[in-house]
Each structure stands twice: as structure tokens, then as C-alpha cells.
């Protein structure tokens, strides 16, 4: 079989990680990379056969690519994604998707018109525990839902200093865009789509220009409400830790990337869950991958994207359309926080 030709645009932490994962995929050849940092490009020149570009459009024009992975600052997602789609190139874009709803809608329309595979990097959906949580909720194990809490904490900005594009609100920086977007997306896909935000607080802790913590009460389409609590300046966490807690009339589930704790008031024989607590671990759910870097989910999402291209089908997980819903919730939160 002829291998697919892929390229990476943006070689920061996520871009490099994508480059390694794409590079290790047996059905893909990574032919080129693009970044403004000549330092990183020089490393590629020195150690690999991959072509390097500082001009994204030139790369798209010169290379006959099947797909591109875009991992640049959020502000320039729009122009890059649009250019790729116009040239008929399948596109994987990092999260959050777009900074304005108009731009996001434009890209969703264009990708669908062109029938191109389009996916956004909300990788939590490729973690077995969150996936099983969705399945369990769909089978109604908790009965009528009463409340939810979506949380993420981690140690990104833990002292006062100026930083990178992530500390610039115009670039799409800040805890809301970077951290909270993951939680909002999980809530939206697993529990239900938020349509209202109340009491939203975007708090600065150490950053001068952007929020370091996000707190809000979200109401979903179903009427169910819950709490969003996210803080990237919490050094009591060694790395990003994301969790959902869902309370229903029949019990409660607390789920994160490594375990799912289920409490049921009565046993559920269909799911083989006893009365009281049942703890399930990621070892039971981990999605098998052929290459591992930082977590199965990063490889699994790229494998899904590549599979969709090969099978000429659309992804059911993390399409542009789904990512745009998250962008809309982000906008709701920003508007509410200004009230």
C-alpha cells in the first residue's frame, strides 16, 4: 500500500509530540514540518530526512500532502486550516479550534463541502475510562441525573512572570482556552451540551494578561446544571489532572484518566456492578496502540484520524463541528464573566 503523506505545522510541545506519533504510524510518511523557530527546524534538518519550511503556504503548495496536523497558536488556526481545506488536504487541528465562532463555522462548512476528514485534538475521548463513562451514562446506570462537576487542575503557571503565546489573550492563551476547553468538551460530549453559563469567574492568579482559573455554573440543554472548576496554577498536582463527577438518583460516578469509581444504591446486574462502590482502572480499558508517547490517547486519536482518511469516512469523535460547540461555550463563559 502507498503510504499517506503527512505534515506538521507548529513544533511546540504538542507539534513535536504529534510529529513523533505520526512518524511512527506504519501507514504514514511524514514528509515535511513547518515552524517559525529555525532552531527546531535545524534539528530536523540535522537529524532527519523530513523537509522543513518556515512558510506554511509554501509547504502546502510544494508538497502533495494527504493531511496536515496543525499545532500552532490558536489565533492562526483559521488561516492555516482554511488554506489546507481549500487545497483538498485532510486536517487535524489542535484544540481549542477557533477564536471566533464565525471563523469556526466557516471551517466546518468548508470541511464538510469538501468531504475532508476533520478532527480536533480533544484527546480525552481516546482515554478508555472517559469512553466507558459515556457508555455507562448512555445505558442509564445513574438514572435521572442530578448534578455534575467537571474539573481540571495542574501546575502550568505557578509563579509571576511573563510567558509565551499562552499568556496572551489575543493569541488564545489562558486557562480557559488551554485547560478548561478540555473539560467543557468532555461535559458536552459525555453529559450534554451546555447552553447557559452563570456566575462565571475568570481569575488571574499569577498571569498578568490571562486567566489562571475558571469557575462557572453550566446549564445543559437537558436543564441539568453543574459546576466547572479549572485551575492551571495549582502546584499540588504533578501534571494536568482532569475529572468528571456525575451524581444521579441511582448513584454517582467519579471518573478521571486512570480510574472510574462507581457508587450504586442498588446492584446493576446487566453491567455486573454491585451495590456500593466499584473501582475500575485504566488497565481494563486502555486502548491498544502501536506506539506510545505520553499516553495511549495521543496515538489513538492520530490512528483514528489516519483510519478515517484511509476508509474515506468521517470521524464520529472530535470533528470540527463538535469542537465548535466547545468554542461557543467558551464564548458564553467569557460573556458571562463580564456581566
Amino acid at each position: 500500500m502507498v503510504k499517506l503523506k503527512g505534515a506538521i505545522s507548529g513544533l511546540g510541545k504538542m507539534g513535536l509530540s504529534h510529529a513523533a506519533i505520526v512518524g511512527a504510524h506504519p501507514e504514514v510518511d511524514i514528509v515535511s514540518v513547518c515552524d517559525t523557530s529555525t532552531l527546531v527546524l535545524d534539528a530536523f534538518k540535522r537529524f532527519t530526512k523530513v523537509k522543513t519550511y518556515t512558510d506554511y503556504q509554501k509547504m502546502i503548495d510544494n508538497e502533495s500532502l494527504d493531511f496536515v496536523v496543525i499545532a500552532t497558536p490558536t489565533r492562526i488556526h483559521y488561516e492555516m486550516v482554511r488554506y489546507a481545506l481549500e487545497k483538498g488536504i485532510h486536517t487535524f487541528c489542535e484544540k481549542p479550534f477557533s477564536l471566533t465562532i464565525r471563523e469556526g463555522e466557516d471551517l466546518v462548512t468548508l470541511a464538510n463541502q469538501k468531504k475532508l476528514v476533520n478532527q480536533v485534538g480533544y484527546h480525552n475521548h481516546f482515554i478508555g475510562t472517559f469512553r466507558d463513562l459515556k457508555r455507562l451514562l448512555d445505558t442509564d446506570v445513574l438514572g435521572d441525573l442530578v448534578h455534575f462537576t467537571g474539573e481540571a487542575y495542574g501546575p502550568v503557571v505557578i509563579k509571576e512572570k511573563s510567558g509565551t503565546w499562552r499568556s496572551d489573550p489575543k493569541e488564545g492563551g489562558g486557562c480557559l482556552f488551554d485547560y478548561a476547553s478540555h473539560v467543557i468538551n468532555l461535559i458536552q460530549e459525555i453529559i450534554g451540551r451546555p447552553t447557559k453559563a452563570n456566575g462565571s469567574q475568570l481569575k488571574r492568579i499569577y498571569s498578568k494578561e490571562v486567566d489562571d482559573a475558571v469557575y462557572s455554573i453550566l446549564t445543559l440543554e437537558s436543564g441539568l446544571s453543574g459546576v466547572l472548576s479549572v485551575n492551571w496554577s495549582d502546584e499540588t498536582y504533578r501534571k494536568m489532572s482532569t475529572s468528571l463527577t456525575i451524581l444521579g438518583k441511582k448513584g454517582k460516578i467519579i471518573c478521571n484518566a486512570s480510574e472510574m469509581k462507581i457508587y450504586l444504591k442498588e446492584a446493576n446486574s446487566k453491567e455486573n456492578l454491585g451495590k456500593g462502590w466499584t473501582i475500575k482502572y485504566i488497565t481494563d480499558f486502555a486502548i491498544p496502540v502501536n506506539f506510545y508517547l505520553r499516553g495511549e490517547e495521543y496515538s489513538a486519536q492520530i490512528a483514528n484520524f489516519v483510519d478515517c482518511i484511509i476508509r474515506k469516512s468521517q470521524t464520529e469523535i472530535n470533528s470540527f463541528k463538535q469542537a465548535l460547540i466547545t468554542d461557543k461555550v467558551i464564548e458564553l463563559l467569557i460573556a458571562d464573566s463580564k456581566n
Binding site: 511546540g12 510541545k13 501546575p155 502550568v156 510567558g163 509565551t164
Partner: peptide, 15 residues
Amino acid sequence: AHKYANAVTDLGIIG
């Protein structure tokens, strides 16, 4: 690794 991974998110590679 986390020492550097968190720093890269915050400061960039050169930082």
C-alpha cells in the same frame, strides 16, 4: 520530564 513539560507550556522551548 514534568519539570520541562510544564515549563515548555509556560515558557516555550527557548524559555
